[in-house]
């Protein structure tokens, strides 16, 4: 659990980089700090593990005020992932992953086992990769090692600073998917910083949109999309609105507006939890059959688009 109460931070006497931020993130939840460069999102993140000291306000991690702990102890209980990985170039892959467990004085066998388990989960088979050095890996592999390092000590909280920002778009999507599918993150309190709206919507349980050091809106992705708090939020999301809406809406959300077709030739099955984005991908090849609350409907592309338009009205 991570909690911020009225946190502010100044660089210099005038410039308020972070201005009265408060939020709470529960275990199992991923809060995305979203905003343009200089909005204060990274500064906020770095205050949580005390890479920066808060100017005023309180920050609690797992129920403890961060300033009550020595910074090293605090940081060892929080996983940390950086955009440029920051892997130690003179450590092998397995040594890099084992850094924090070593600091915590785990015994060697336990570190070894933990390291190898994580490498397998992240599709870096230990037999092939354990003894390589970071410079021998591709960007995506390096970022996976960075993830494994942050997860190694099984810390209850995880801070991620644009973790996929340095990857090319295709690699970014695949690493992101793997991350999302990791069982390791299930019960963690995660705060992720990004300027990538699509990433925020895909990974965030909730999104905290920031501008000029202030929170503009904090809420579930659909809240920001369909109930923007102000013009800034609306205009920030506009360029990708359609795509985001398709991803935010599930078939079941549109159920009342979908026509009750019954022709059943050449359909494929689709679940009601699928997003419209996923449904459209399927519908390009053939119509689909969806069952929701004991009712069956056959939908095609046109029907879906009409339903979306009707829903937004």
């Amino acid at each position: 659990m991570i909690k911020l109460e009225h946190v502010s931070k100044n660089f210099g006497p005038e410039k308020k980089v972070v201005n009265d931020i408060s939020f709470e993130v529960a275990p199992g939840e991923t809060l995305v700090l979203l905003g343009t460069s200089g909005c204060g999102k990274t500064t906020t993140l770095r205050m949580i593990n005390r890479l920066l000291e808060p100017g005023s306000g309180h920050i609690y991690v797992n129920g403890k005020e961060v300033r009550q702990l020595p910074p090293e102890t605090l940081r060892r209980s929080i996983g940390y992932v950086l955009q440029n990985t920051g892997l130690f170039p003179h450590y092998t892959v397995s040594e890099n992953i084992g850094v924090v467990p070593t600091l915590l004085k785990w015994d060697k066998a336990r570190i070894h086992e933990r390291t190898f388990t994580l490498m397998d989960k992240l599709r870096l088979p230990a037999a092939d990769y354990a003894d390589l050095y970071p410079h021998q890996l591709s960007g995506g592999q390096q970022q996976r090692v960075g993830l494994a390092r942050a997860l190694a000590a099984d810390a209850p909280a995880l801070l991620m600073d644009e973790p996929f920002g340095a990857l090319d778009p295709l690699t970014r999507i695949s690493v992101r998917k793997e991350f999302k599918a990791l069982d390791e993150i299930n019960n963690k309190t995660i705060i992720l910083v990004t300027h990538d709206i699509e990433e925020a919507f895909e990974l965030g349980t909730r999104i905290c949109l920031m501008n000029e050091g202030r929170i503009q809106q904090i809420g579930a992705p659909a809240d920001l999309l369909f109930r923007p708090a102000n013009d800034f939020v609306r205009s920030f999301l506009n360029p990708q609105r359609l795509q985001l809406e398709l991803k935010a809406l599930a078939i079941k959300d549109l159920w009342t507006w979908l026509p009750a077709h019954t022709s059943t030739s050449n359909t494929v099955p689709l679940t009601a939890e699928s997003t419209c984005w996923e449904a459209l991908e399927t519908l390009t090849s053939s119509p689909a059959t969806v069952v929701y609350q004991q009712e069956q409907k056959v939908i095609d592309g046109n029907g879906l688009m009409a339903a979306i338009a009707a829903c937004k009205k």
Binding site: N49, E72, R76, T85, G86, L87, V100, L103
Partner: peptide
Amino acid sequence: DPSVTEAATGMGLSRRQ
């Protein structure tokens, strides 16, 4: 590389370490 020292600090290495 500053990202290496930042990562090291962020993971909880003391100044000495």
